[in-house]
Design a protein around this nucleic acid. Structure first.
Length: 486
RNA sequence: GGCGCUAUAGUAUAAUGGUUAGUACAUGGGGCUCUCAAUCCCAAGAUAGGAGUUCAAUUCUCCUUAGCGCUACCA
């Protein structure tokens, strides 16, 4: 009987939720849900200086926004808590004592300055620096006396001299590293606080984590951690290392590359479904030609076998397209609900207009935007008068200002006669007119479009005029005529 | 420098020891059309390089090259 699958994401709360962390979390989530296991969120805040509550909150919010929920965590119940490393001090201290007593770890009294000196000396001599094991053979009771007397000491792991660390990586296959690659690295600070690798091993073991799936930036840590597992006598979990996400220059993703925090995407008008969908596709594919998938569909299709080994470049072009797909697939009320805040923020009086009218307006632009942040711009002319260049009115028509003035005057005259101000009537009227004038439709429709909207690209002209209404449309045509006359 | 990981079009990916190396986004062209969008059609575009194993290699092995990661009393 296989043991229960338990995976975790263990972010350190030193900043907002990053796209890379989000993807690692997502993959862990998908893996857990796919096999009916548990997904745990643990906060790795051993670095007290850099950890903040605000960051911790941002991480929760980020995952929640993406639709990723966890079974156990600091803000949830669970049998393996506490889920914040800062609250697990005793557990670590016990393990450290065990390590010390078994001889797998020892106190090191070398000062940071001393060590730094040796390191720079080695670098200067173009030699590889490794800790020189100065304190390796100090007897434990002697060391304890010195510590008791107030001497400052870190704790190092005693690395076996000549063993080979081998493990089966779930995405990369067999990984082999010689223990000689490591020196006796430090596992606890002088105050007794564990360093990352130690704390992680203890927590993962105590929390019964069965699969440790994280970025390949941890590949070296995994070997070190296996050494710790062995020293502590813990059974090994399974490991898997995902590729990393790089920017367009194949460099580490940074804020300068654009949006890299989950919150940025929310702000930029992306849908969480689209973002989740997109980041899942960065390094994973369901193995068939299927790209748009809901979270449950991804859970269903997920498999570690289909995880990509090579780094992924974060190119948001496809995200933009995918977001557009999601927007177009929305029902109108849902779309309205999503654009509304953006319109409001732009200062458009969405609450003072009729719901019916708003629906019509919004429907005209739904298939024309790819993110909600485009909304203020494309909806502008529905809500306020916008100034425009008179050149726009004649552009590409090959007509003179006078001819356009004449045309617009006729349009106005004809439109004034329309009783039933609906798209079909408006179009019929204008088409009859253009036929009579013997102009090409575009030559007349473009000036009308510019007159009533101020721009060259808009929703279908007569739908737009219908929604704009008789009064406003005619007023704008008048204004255009005036503009051309001067 | 040391140790490790990776390599299919610009990007994300599919595929098999034998295919015209598939798909999507982006790009270019065209259709539709009052513009834009959507949509449809077409096009261009990839197995990093070199050896080896094999009847056959993009796939397996090795080397080279390139990129990335780690090399903290950070996580």
């Amino acid at each position: 009987m296989a043991e229960e699958v338990r995976v975790r994401i263990a972010p350190s709360p030193t900043g907002k939720l990053h796209i890379g962390n989000a993807r690692t979390g997502l993959f862990n989530y998908l893996f857990a849900r796919n096999v009916g296991g548990k997904f745990i969120l643990r906060v790795d805040d051993t670095d007290k200086e850099r950890s903040t509550e605000e960051s911790e909150r941002a991480i929760y919010e980020g995952f929640e926004w993406l639709g990723i929920d966890w079974d156990e965590g600091p803000n949830k119940s669970g049998d393996y808590g506490p889920y914040r490393q800062s609250e697990r001090g005793e557990l670590y201290h016990d393990a450290i004592q065990k390590l010390l007593e078994s001889g797998n770890a020892y106190y090191c009294f070398c000062s940071q300055d001393e060590l730094a000196e040796k390191r720079t000396a080695a670098e200067k001599a173009h030699e590889i620096y490794r800790y020189d094991n100065m304190c390796r053979d100090i007897p434990l009771d002697e060391a304890r006396k010195r510590v008791a007397a107030g001497e400052r000491a870190v704790i190092r792991l005693r690395i076996p001299d000549d063993v080979t660390i081998v493990f089966e990586d779930l995405v990369r296959g067999e990984i082999e590293v010689k223990s000689k690659a490591f020196d006796d690295f430090i596992i606890a600070k002088p105050n007794g606080d564990p360093l990352y690798n130690l704390a992680t091993v203890i927590d993962d073991h105590l929390m019964k984590i069965s699969h440790i799936l994280r970025g390949q930036d941890h590949l070296t840590n995994t070997s070190k951690q296996i050494l710790i597992y062995n020293a502590l006598g813990y059974p090994l979990p399974k490991f898997g290392h995902f590729s990393l996400i790089m920017d367009k220059n194949r460099k580490k993703l940074s804020k300068r590359a654009g949006a890299v925090y989950i919150g940025d995407f929310k702000k930029d008008g992306y849908l969480p479904q689209a973002v989740t969908n997109f980041i899942a596709l960065l390094g994973w594919s369901p193995g068939e030609d299927r790209e748009k998938m809901t979270l449950p569909e991804m859970v269903e299709a997920f498999s570690m076998n289909r995880i990509q080994k090579s780094d992924a470049i974060f190119d948001t072009e496809k995200l933009l397209w995918l977001n557009g797909v999601y927007i177009r697939d929305m029902e109108l009320p849902e779309f309205l609900e999503n654009v509304k805040p953006h319109l409001k923020e732009a200062g458009y009086p969405v609450d003072d207009v009729s719901q019916e009218w708003l629906n019509k307006v919004v429907a005209l632009e739904q298939e024309r935007i790819k993110t909600f942040s485009e909304a203020p711009e494309v909806f502008e002319f529905f809500f306020k008068d916008i100034p425009y260049e008179k050149e726009l009115l004649t552009k590409k028509t090959k007509k003179t200002d006078e001819e356009i003035v004449g045309a617009l005057e006729q349009v106005k005259a004809e439109l004034e006669k329309v009783d039933n101000w609906v798209e079909a009537e408006l179009e019929k009227t204008c088409r009859e007119l253009v036929e009579k004038m013997e102009w090409k439709t575009g030559q007349l429709f473009m000036p009308i479009r510019v007159a009533v909207t101020g721009r060259k690209a808009t929703p279908p002209l007569f739908d737009t005029i219908e929604v704009l209404g008789r009064e406003l449309s005619l007023k704008r045509i008048d204004k255009a005529i005036e503009l051309l006359k001067v």
